[in-house]
Every structure is written in structure tokens, then in C-alpha cells.
Design a protein around this nucleic acid. Structure first.
Lengths: 194, 194
DNA sequence: CGTCGCATTGATATCGCTCAAATCCGGTGG
DNA sequence: CCACCGGATTTGAGCGATATCAATGCGACG
């Protein structure tokens, strides 16, 4: 897995900084670049016809975003910095050149895309669950990476609610109910499945 | 986009046939191969804890599946033929060799993964919509490829319901309501957004 | 001709959404 | 240091949409 910006691309990359709420690109604009988050966080989102926010992806430090736009003409979503953020951006052309010239990098890039694909499919699976508590349980199972089984939540619970396809009120209530009935334990921003 | 099996892989590929309902691989078994559907259809699915089916992907003729398993140890879902199906299967090792040796194929494979990624993200967006009619509308907008704006539904409406994260009863009712109120038109297995 | 699965519609219950209000907490400016 | 502000968190009340259970028709297929 790539979690550093490839050195071979550094010469062609440009650095950009954004304030919280800053717009990086907009849905429908020509997709010329692929991005890498150096620091901060970026939210990829679209708006439904009623104006509700749909978060497609939340990219954090060390992650690429808009990776799939290499052979797409336009961006399919808005990209907005949720905090103070610096990104590196390369043109699709440069990236394609590196892929063509460097088989090792091509292999890494394929791994990256495959990993993303598995992650998004996991999310589809989660959103296919009909009950709120099942989604929370699925989330905790998938994220069970912490040593003691604790899952740390990045960002606010409100953000998590959006990721789970729930309103924040429902998520708060669901967490409270699951905690009371002894299904999960909570410690600060960490959760554990019991 | 790749819609034929790459000739360079043919020597290393093996062909297999399955009857309707035949099991191709099971969740948790070691992922050694990547598959290509020659004819028929394959459903990638998991089961929730209540036994309900969650369809992750429906692969049809000319499509790969389990593409993301190249650098994964185990399959994360079941693969089942929904009709009489023949597949070509290659080992991950052979595929990786081709990627390393043939930059043009590597490029095509990256396009394939990027395309899959966009498709799954579209589905996440759809599942994030809270109302049944919004999901139907979103589906028809995304699939608006037909000449006269008609979207042909592959498979049964029951399958579509699963893809939209709805029960089949709700989908039937939603379609009926939208048709009565003039939002969509229906002609056999084709639908149009008005 | 019987069976099986899809399509369709009805009745009902439940879960999550919506609107609303109160509290908490971190940051900011005076 | 304190007052204030905005956003997150939490809980309440009520409603509506969707799931669930149930029944029927229909076509395909053996």
C-alpha cells in the first residue's frame, strides 16, 4: 500500500493549501489532476436534490483521492477541505507516464485501487443493512484494528452518522441503546464490540 | 475498457462451467484466482447475520470479477452462478506477471479498476438516499444509456430491489406510485424517467 | 398438471426521520 | 478571567415511510 507520495512524481507535483471549508474541485469540472493529502482531511461529497450532503469518501493524511479520475473527463463530486489542509496534486498525464515507465509503481497503483475497491464494497455491504444497530455493529467489526478491539472514530459522531447513512439523532440513540444493553462499550472516541 | 479476455492470458487460463446456483467460491477461502465471465451471470454476495442476502456485485458476460483479490488473502464474499455460466479463471500470479511484463495491459487493468471504483461509488451514493423513489430515480439517471432514454433492467425486479437496498414489495409499490403520478414510464423491462 | 419463483397488492407494526429544545464544549474576543 | 458563540451532543414527541407478514395471480418448466 502506498502511504507516501511517490518520489518519482515529486518533480511534477504542485502543493496547495486550503482553509477549512475550502473548495478543491467541483462536480462537473474537467478532471485533470489526482490528489494526495499531506496534512488535514478532505471530504468528497455530492448533494442530493433536497440539498442533503452525501459523503462519498473522507480522505485523510497519507491518502490519495480522485484516483479513479485518471480516465474520466469530469469530476463526479465536490472536494472540500474539512480542516486546514495541504495537498499534492499531479496531472493525470504525469501519473500515466509514471505508470507506463515504472512497473513497480504500476503494481503499487493497482494495489491501491484494489484496496479502495474493497473498502467501498464493504461500505455498500454496510449500507445494505437495514437496521441502524446492524450498521454500527458492521462498522465496528470492519474497523476492529485497534489492539484491544477498540475502534477509534475519526472525526465527529455526526460525520460517522453520514458515513453510516443515518441521521445523527438516530446514531446517538442507537449508540445509547446498544451501550445500555451491553452490546458495545464506549471510552471517549473509542468503541468496542462486546 | 477491457471486455474481452486478454489474449496473453489465454494460455494460463482454465475454463469452468457452472449450473444455475453453482458455487464458484466461498467467503473466507484462499483467493488464488481472478475470474472472467464468458457467458451467463455471477452474483457476488454475502449473508447478514439474519441470513438476508446482500448482493455486492452482479457480473455479466464480458466482465471480470474478484479483480480486487489479487493482493488479498481470502475472498470476502460468495460467488454463485445465477444461470448456466462459463468462466475463465487465471491465477493471481499469472495476472501479476502480465501486469509486470505488459505496460499496455497494466494500463488497461488500471482503467478497469478505476471504472469499477466509480461504479461502486455511484452505488454508495444511491444507497445513501433515504427515500425509495429517490433511489429509483438515481438508478434511472445513472443508467440512462439507451437511445431513447430507456433503461433496461437486467434480471428480475427482485434483483433490482436488492441492488437498491429495498425489499421487493417496496420496489413494486414505489414503481407503481411513480408510474401513476407520471414520474416514470414503463415498457416491458425498460423504464424511462419523465 | 403440479410446482416453483416472480409479480402484485393488502394490512399492520416498527423503525428511523423530522422538528424541537436543552446541554456541553472549545474557541475567541473583550 | 469571563461572556459569548457556534457546532456537537443528547433527549423528547410524533409521524410517515418502509419492513414484515400474508394472500393471490401468473408464467415457465418439468
Amino acid at each position: 500500500m502506498i502511504n507516501e507520495f511517490p518520489a518519482a512524481l515529486l518533480p511534477c507535483a504542485t502543493r496547495a493549501s486550503y482553509k477549512p471549508g475550502g473548495l478543491i474541485f467541483r462536480v462537473g469540472s474537467p478532471s485533470k489532476a489526482v490528489f494526495f493529502v499531506e496534512a488535514g482531511a478532505v471530504r468528497l461529497m455530492r448533494r442530493g436534490r433536497n440539498g442533503e450532503e452525501i459523503v462519498l469518501y473522507q480522505a485523510r493524511a497519507g491518502e490519495f483521492f480522485a484516483e479513479a479520475s485518471i480516465d474520466s473527463v469530469r469530476y463526479h463530486c465536490d472536494a472540500i477541505a474539512t480542516e486546514a489542509t495541504t495537498v499534492l496534486k499531479t496531472t493525470s498525464a504525469d501519473l500515466l507516464r509514471l505508470i507506463a515507465d515504472d512497473p513497480v509503481f504500476a503494481r503499487q497503483w493497482i494495489s491501491l485501487l484494489a484496496h479502495q475497491l474493497r473498502a467501498v464494497r464493504t461500505r455498500v455491504e454496510r449500507l445494505s443493512l437495514k437496521s441502524a444497530s446492524e450498521r454500527v455493529r458492521h462498522f465496528l467489526l470492519a474497523g476492529a484494528s485497534g489492539a484491544d478491539g477498540d475502534v477509534k472514530v475519526n472525526g465527529t459522531l455526526k460525520d460517522l452518522a453520514r458515513e453510516l447513512g443515518l441521521t445523527h439523532e438516530t446514531l446517538y440513540r442507537t449508540i445509547a441503546t446498544m451501550e445500555r444493553s451491553g452490546q458495545i462499550a464506549r471510552r471517549g472516541d473509542g468503541f468496542r464490540l462486546l
